[in-house]
Amino acid sequence: MVDVSKLRETAREIISREDVRELIGYRAGTYGFRARPAFVYDPGEVDQLIFNPACVNNLATYITLEEKLPVPRGQEPDLRKVAVMVKGCDSRALVQQMAENAYERDRILVIGIPCTGVVDMDKVQARFPDVLGPGEISLEGDKFVLIFDGRREEIPKEELLADKCKRCRFPTPLVYDVLLDEEVAPFATDDYSDVEALESRSQDEKWAYWEEKFSRCIRCYSCRNVCPMCYCNDCILDRLRPQWIRRSVDISENTAFHIARAYHLAGRCIQCGECQRVCPVEIPLMELNRKLYKDVEELYDFEPGVKVDAPPLLSSYRPDDPEDFIL
């Protein structure tokens, strides 16, 4: 577990530096057990920072989400660093962003958090719907300990752990300038049994499954916006000429949208699971991303978000790539 006083002290040092503009971390949410992103600009603000298993957000998103206004004539752009707290999975987003030359390594200052797993907030909410909070979650051994309204509840880790953490192979950040705790050894493996189970069904069964899911989509684009890898200035979904995907919400456009979203992440998705977490209508988006992830690994022996100097999958090739499907 990360020691909060050490975290705040590190943050205080970092935000006091002249070459750091802001620090992105976590703070307590407004109700229940939630935690939320915190933006710190001043050493006086570091005491709100926390880290616990409720800190689910992938803060790497904010590096590329910034909306830059044109710099007024006569003014210099603010080139100071952005400091960001990342868990193991989140750090892979930074690696992949840098592999794609989204920004230079020295633009960011990475505070790494070795992570033992975060909760699935929906599962917490379902068990304790009436907690106004603030409630605190911590991990003790193989149990999550929830403290709220003067009560203390212990729940087996397995029951509240987020699904992505059950398959996590990178609990310790792959890139960091400061590491807040001892490295955590990988504690899980991934066998893609969920993807394989779906692959083995008939075509009509698969379509029936996805048709139901896609028909629920309201196209709020939260899956795109939360994604650290979705940072195109001119997104295919917003273009009008050509309008690749229409704005109308029906099964045809929703399907095209979900194909485009997942496919644009082929060889890029780092499995932080944020898209599926935020989806208000609970479309299992990770089952789409993971299919592509699995194929990319099997066909091209490629894993995104682990090497900063890896060439992007779809703008590289090997002469002996598989071509059994070609007539």
């Binding site: 779906l198 692959e199 379509w207 789409l288 066909l299 779809l314």
Partner: peptide
């Protein structure tokens, strides 16, 4: 070569959604 990677992945992906691979061919 680029096309080969793209369409291999797209074809597999569409099959995963229930679109028969016979509909997406490359030669």
């Amino acid at each position: 070569y680029y096309a080969r990677r793209r369409f291999k992945l797209m074809r597999n992906f569409l099959e995963y959604l229930g679109i028969e691979p016979e509909r997406v061919r490359m030669s």
